[in-house]
Design a protein around this nucleic acid. Sequence first.
DNA 1: GTATCAGAACAACCGATGGTTGTCCTACTA
DNA 2: TAGTAGGACAACCATCGGTTGTTCTGATAC
Lengths: 310, 310
Amino acid sequence: MDLAAVRTFVSAADAGQFQEAAAELSITQQAVSKRIAVLEKDLGVRLFMRTPRGARLTIDGQAFLPHARALLDAEQRAADSVRPGSRALRVDVIGRRVATAGLLRAFHRAHPEVQLDIVTTLFGVDAAIAALRTGEIDATFRAVTMPGRHLPDDIEAVPVLDEPLQLVTGPTHAFAADRAVAPVRLAGQRIWMPGNAPGTEWTAYYEAFAAAFGFTIDPIGPDFGVEVLLDTIAESSTLATFLSERTPLVWPVSHDLRRIPLHDPTPVYPHSLLWRADNPHPGLAALRDHLTATRPDVPGSEVWKPEWAR
Amino acid sequence: MDLAAVRTFVSAADAGQFQEAAAELSITQQAVSKRIAVLEKDLGVRLFMRTPRGARLTIDGQAFLPHARALLDAEQRAADSVRPGSRALRVDVIGRRVATAGLLRAFHRAHPEVQLDIVTTLFGVDAAIAALRTGEIDATFRAVTMPGRHLPDDIEAVPVLDEPLQLVTGPTHAFAADRAVAPVRLAGQRIWMPGNAPGTEWTAYYEAFAAAFGFTIDPIGPDFGVEVLLDTIAESSTLATFLSERTPLVWPVSHDLRRIPLHDPTPVYPHSLLWRADNPHPGLAALRDHLTATRPDVPGSEVWKPEWAR
DNA sequence: GTATCAGAACAACCGATGGTTGTCCTACTA
DNA sequence: TAGTAGGACAACCATCGGTTGTTCTGATAC
């Protein structure tokens, strides 16, 4: 399939006639006619009904049009992802559903001129930092300050969000009726956090949290995604898990899950933005400025973070 | 941008060398080299680092790769949307978040071989039926049986889902603490349903519902989307709205919205599948069979539908 | 009813594009 | 040091995609 032909198709569909589309594309009407003809032959269907007063879309043409636009969009994005000079800012987030992805969306709303290329494939801080250094990504949201780790000299970081955690239980759990729970009451409990692989900053955080308050983290089982996790939690009277207070959750109400705030102190997960000091991308500066400007005031009192995150 | 070049790029990236990519595409290595070279010139960046042992992606190449795949996917979908003989089944749903979209997803899981082309642009049953008749779409999910309407002879319909409605209120609303509410108790209340334009089947449904139980529907204001609606509801002590029990909602827990089941009777919104009787698309038959086979048993007792929907 | 006009298709032509074969270059490996 | 795998460069040629010129058709004006 020829993208020039697809572009021509969209122009002609918008204009309602080949002549005008030709003018728009600075080619002759005959060239438009030819392009459309080969596209139709390619696809095996008629896209336009030609009349002496213009050309109107056939049914197939109508069905094809939105796909054609999507195709051209994809082309644009692909080109933007590497455009020299002003290529997209490549940002790594842990997942598209976590709070930092929300920060990124807010940034995009505030600065629509900065093209974003969102990457979620990197596993662990170390991989992310390596990717920063090679230039594969421009920035990453991570909890960096793991114990015994020092950031390399060429990597800079700024804290952007302390994300309060909540306890999530099913309706039959011992804490289900509580309005709030203090972390000390978790002592002896088992908290299920599947998919937390050793060596990542997430794991380090939850281990520190568990050690501080005397409960245990159960990393059993692969991570089938938040839905499966919640399905299981909903039906258990002993299992519980942590979830961010800000995570917009998607669940059918039938589960009747309880999200119970943690207080005295509230554990917060410390997100930072990391980047390579010598990265000159203008979008990176914009992102940094935006995040520090919009960073919510730290609650200050009564929050808990690991020693190594202060 | 040339899609053949993009395809070549992906092949070469996968193979790690031009030679193998060339074999795969049944062209010579020199042709691959040329294609990649013009693609690079086109984009203005180097995509591969050539070595005498193969070719490895540069940073830009790595960033470009996922976009390249997305582009080829989009091309595939575009072609499928009109492929003669086995083109995609064009199905219209009211929105991607409502329950019928869920039915469609389930169908897609059960029959992945049927290509789906989901359309959400049609406004109202009448437009949908017109589109069915011209062939612009193959099927539509609608609540058809509006008062005084008769389906044209060439259009068939089958009920597929009775969707129970719930009341949604903020924490300060009079009903906020109730475990369930009977529709009779809604008498005198104002229910906010923004964006319900006159003449659509949605409006007809809610008007019938309101008339049957003596409350009023307030269609004030444009529909800014469910998030804005819920933001407003959360902070009001008098406003409430209806929402499907099955709608997986996305909201930050801080809103503390209440979803209150409606009982005695439970109002249900009647979705049907409509299609043109003489449409021979095999995927249409599959969809029909799937929906009737998986249709949940009607609760039978204690549900309410408009007179004209029985 | 005939002339005019807008817009599309068809035909002939021609240069750019994109493929081929043939060759050379380079860094590993035996 | 020779052999080998893999890529680039050069020369060549067919095809493709554009151009100009012309014809065809149906609606509108006279």
